[in-house]
């Protein structure tokens, strides 16, 4: 007889094995990070690699410290983060709205398709000069760049989510006499939530690409600016430090969205 409260020895062994596997994966992740950083530090310390060219973890920390001390750190981080978030939200909200319009009419969809395909394939950086001339060199230009980099994907992914709604459920709504609006509110939007979450995840990455690319072209401050400036004056420490901060920020933003997804998509 099986006892509901107590697991069998076999099951306990299974659970233990699963747990051990998880610990192994997590520790390996940290070990790899530590090994890369350690080796990097060691090679520059032993002068095998020239820290002027490769920088080093200790020099990155030092640069981080001096940026912080001068108050520059949060200014640059704040500017880039602000541009990225603004671009991200505009792209997602505008992209979602456009996808709704496209969903509502097959004709509009057919008309818009070639434009979307071309805009999707176009390397947005080609628009750099136009953006500078039309919008100027302020934050707006960078936010605009972020939006155009991220929005096409937002449109295509959310639209695909809307169109993937189970046809049986659509027939059901139709048979109940549901209006287009009710179908949207009660079926299409909730059913496509997982697709929206996936879109957000990809859009985060694209928003960072957009904002840094924008800063490469026009900026006077921000992490992208630090990278370009650092490269021009051969301050590789600055380049590495800014890149490191980007990694942390992008990781955090992805983490936040993954968390939101976990909460929102629980029912699916």
């Amino acid at each position: 007889m099986k006892n509901k409260m107590n697991f069998s020895g076999e099951h306990l062994a299974y659970l233990k094995k699963q747990k051990r596997k998880k610990i192994l994966v997590i520790s390996l992740r940290w070990i790899i990070l530590a090994a890369v950083l350690g080796l990097w530090e060691l090679l520059t310390f032993l002068k095998v690699a020239d820290p002027f060219i490769t920088s080093s973890p200790s020099r990155v920390i030092k640069t981080l410290g001096s940026l912080y001390a001068s108050g520059e750190l949060f200014r640059h981080v704040g500017i880039t983060l602000g541009e990225t978030l603004a671009g991200f939200f505009i792209a997602v909200i505008l992209g979602y709205s456009i996808a709704l319009v496209l969903w509502s009419s097959q004709t509009v969809r057919a008309v818009a398709e070639p434009y979307i395909v071309v805009l999707n394939s176009l390397p947005k950086i080609a628009l750099g000069p136009l953006i500078i001339i039309w919008i100027g060199t302020g934050y707006t230009a960078i936010i605009f760049m972020t939006v155009i980099v991220a929005i096409i994907l937002c449109i295509m992914n959310t639209l695909a989510g809307f169109l993937a709604v189970d046809p049986t459920k659509l027939t059901l709504m139709k048979a109940m006499g549901a209006s287009r609006r009710a179908t949207l509110a009660k079926l299409v939007i909730p059913a496509s939530l997982p697709a929206l979450m996936n879109t957000l995840k990809v859009a985060v990455g694209l928003a960072w690409i957009g904002s840094i690319m924008g800063e490469y072209i026009v900026s006077r401050a921000g992490l992208g600016y630090l990278i370009v400036y650092g490269g021009q004056v051969m301050k590789l420490d600055l380049v590495m430090t800014a890149t490191f901060i980007l990694c942390v920020l992008a990781g955090c933003m992805y983490g936040v969205i993954a968390l939101i997804e976990k909460i929102v998509v629980k029912q699916f």
């Binding site: 189970d166 049986t168 459920k169 027939t171 059901l172 048979a175 109940m176 006499g177 009660k186 079926l187 909730p190 059913a191 939530l193 029912q267 699916f268």
Partner: peptide
């Protein structure tokens, strides 16, 4: 009266 439609799959909304 109205008609009620029952389909091949139950089409219950998971959310």
């Amino acid at each position: 009266g109205e008609a009620g439609y029952m389909l091949q799959r139950d089409a219950l909304f998971e959310w």
